[in-house]
Structure formats: C-alpha cells, structure tokens
Amino acid sequence: MIYKNFPMVSRVIFGRGSFNQIEEILSPKRLSTKAPFIYFVDDVFKGNAWLTSRIPLSYDDKVIYVSTAKEPETSQIDQLVEQIILDYKELPSGIIGIGGGSVLDIAKAVSIMLTNPGESKNYQGWDLVKNPAIYHVGIPTISGTGAEVSRTTILTGPERKLGINSDFTPFDQVILDPELTKDVPKDQWFFTGMDCFVHCVESLNGTYLNSFSQTYGEKAFSLCKEIFLEDTLSEEDSQDKLMMASWHGGMSIAYSQVGVAHALSYGLGYLLGVKHGIGNCIVFDHLEEYYPDGVAMFKEMKAKHNIKLPQGICKNLSDKEFNIMIDVALSLEPLWENAIGKQWKKVITRDKLRTLYQKM
C-alpha cells in the first residue's frame, strides 16, 4: 500500500483580532521593495474602512477588489496573472486572499499560475502543477467552504468546473479571525455553513474514509449540529466555532473526498452559474437515497432557520443542457468512487443523474 503524502497549511493563527497581526506576519516574507504583496479582496468590502484600513500597504503593494457575483473562471485567473506580470518587473512577494471561498480560490490559483506556464484551464485536474506557487496567504471572511485549508482551487473553465488539485495549492499561511465574519448575511451564513456540513456527511459516509479523515469529520459534524440546531451559543461563540468547523471539515476531505452532492453541484455551477454553497443545498435536499440521516438533519436545520431554497431551476432545460450538467458531474470520478465504490459506473447512469437534476 502506497499512502499519499499530502501537504498541509504550514502556519496558521487563530483568534479574534488576529487580522491586526498581518503586517508582522508578512514583513519577513517581503523579497524586495520592487516585489509587492498583492491583496485580492472581496469587493463587498470596498469602502469598508473597518477592514480595508488595516491592510498594510507599502512600496508597490496593491489591493485588487474582485467581484464574487460569479464563481472564479479560468479566463479571470489568466487575466489577473497577465495584469500582474505586465504591471511589475518582479514576481510578487506574495498573494493574499481576503474573502470567502471564491476569493481564496482566486488567490491560490493566481499564486500557482505566476510560476507555471500556459493557461489555468490546463491545470484543472489532479496533480498537474509542476512548479511551486509563490507565497500565498488565506484570510477567510466567511466560514464553511474549507477553501482556507484545502489543496484545491475550484474554477469554471471552458469545458468543465474542476479544481486545480495539487500539492502546491494549499496556503503557506492562514489567518483565522472569526471577527471578520460578523456581518455575513443570514442566508449566506447558512449556505456556506452547509457546505461544511455536506463535506462532513460525504466524507464520513464515503468509501475513502479512514481514521485521519474521520477524526476531523466527526468534530466538524458535531460543531455544525451545535451551531445550526442548538440555541446555547452566543453570536461570538457561533462565529468562532463555525470557523473551526470549516477548518476541520476541509481537513476531513484532505485525506478522503466529497461525494454525490458536490459532483451534481458542479454541474449546476457550470451550466447555470449556481454558487457552490447554495448549489450543494439544492442538490443535498434530494439525496435521501445516498445520505438519509444527513439529509434529514439538513432539512431540520433548514426549517429551524427558515431557509427557502430555489425551486424548479432545471425544469425548462433542454436535453443538451441536461447532458452538459451530466457530463460535468460524471467527470468527477474520485467523488463518485468515494460515494459509491469502485463499481460506481454500474450504478450511476446518465438516466439516474437526469432524474435527480429534474427534481431540482
């Protein structure tokens, strides 16, 4: 048996107000006065002095605000990389992502593509990256995606929605400051938190399960139950614990995989532009056949927080559009093998997937 030697985030700081230590953390990593730090910041924070005034800009450092109206695309990554190469004579000292999963994925992807030739679409898949990324830092402002700890960066390309999964993708440094999540809207808090919950359900019920992933998954699952079903936590405690649930949920799939919900959600995201968190919720709501206990608990959480999911988003799709989503979902073979087993192709047919999509 050959075991995969996965990398992890090498440095992490946790605590309310830890964002204030960013200059202390970054300063030793500056390569020269001509090698800037580039900050990718969710544009929801544009004009928000409470956060942006604390970003320590020196020399040629730059803040680039990015819209998260759509999830990251390979063309967007390529444009950002080209912009940085044209604007600066030297490679940046580091790339810092401040935002939700999409912004963190952009930061990871740009840091990889600055040192690897060609277009980012050519690196969608598993272990295709050959050269180490430049120094990159993740600072989540919403909890649940696990993007801060994962070895993937999810991108929509011209042919597929698929991550750059590599040993060079994980951040070199993560700053976990739960205070940064204080203004997240209720629906977004729920959808992103459910991304974490679904990570746990898929990992704990998968054929790839082992004690490493199980330990992290069980802790994240327990935290999600406490946060979304109990009324014992203060707002600050809930923020702190959801940030740690996200971390543990991401770690639970580092040595295993996700499953049916994520595979189908990628299809919705690719064709319809449905965001990852809400896409997982729309799909998971119909997966009693695969995760009966998890789906029952999800429905309980949904009712408790009065969450209404979009209905009928697939009802007017053509045969061609259904086939596009099915192709995307079926391309994610490790997810299906984790969910069903090595013989998954005998069970997961195109008709089966179409029937599931038609329910959404």
Rank of each mutant, 00 (worst) to 15 (best):
K4I: 09
P7W: 05
M8P: 07
M8W: 08
V9K: 04
R16D: 10
Q21G: 13
I22Q: 14
R30G: 09
K34T: 12
D42N: 02
D42P: 10
W50I: 15
L51Y: 08
P56Y: 02
Y65A: 14
T68W: 13
I77S: 05
D78G: 00
D78A: 08
E82D: 00
Y88L: 11
E90L: 12
I95Y: 02
G101I: 01
V103M: 12
D105T: 00
I106C: 00
E119I: 14
S120P: 00
Y123C: 08
W126S: 08
I134F: 06
V137P: 15
G144H: 09
G146T: 02
G146V: 08
E148G: 07
V149H: 00
N165H: 12
S166D: 14
F168Q: 11
F171I: 05
P178W: 14
P178Q: 15
K182Q: 15
D187C: 13
F191Q: 10
T192V: 15
M194W: 09
D195R: 11
C196G: 08
H199D: 12
G206N: 10
G206Q: 14
N210L: 10
E218S: 10
F221P: 09
L223E: 03
E235P: 03
E235I: 04
K241W: 00
M244W: 02
M244N: 12
S252W: 07
A254C: 09
H262W: 00
S265N: 01
Y266Q: 06
V274L: 06
K275P: 12
N280Q: 11
V283N: 05
H286V: 03
Y290G: 04
G294K: 08
A296L: 08
E300Q: 15
N306S: 14
K308A: 14
C314H: 03
S318M: 04
K320E: 04
F322P: 04
D327N: 06
A329Y: 09
E333W: 01
L335K: 06
E337C: 01
W344P: 07
I348L: 07
I348P: 04
Q358N: 05
M360C: 05
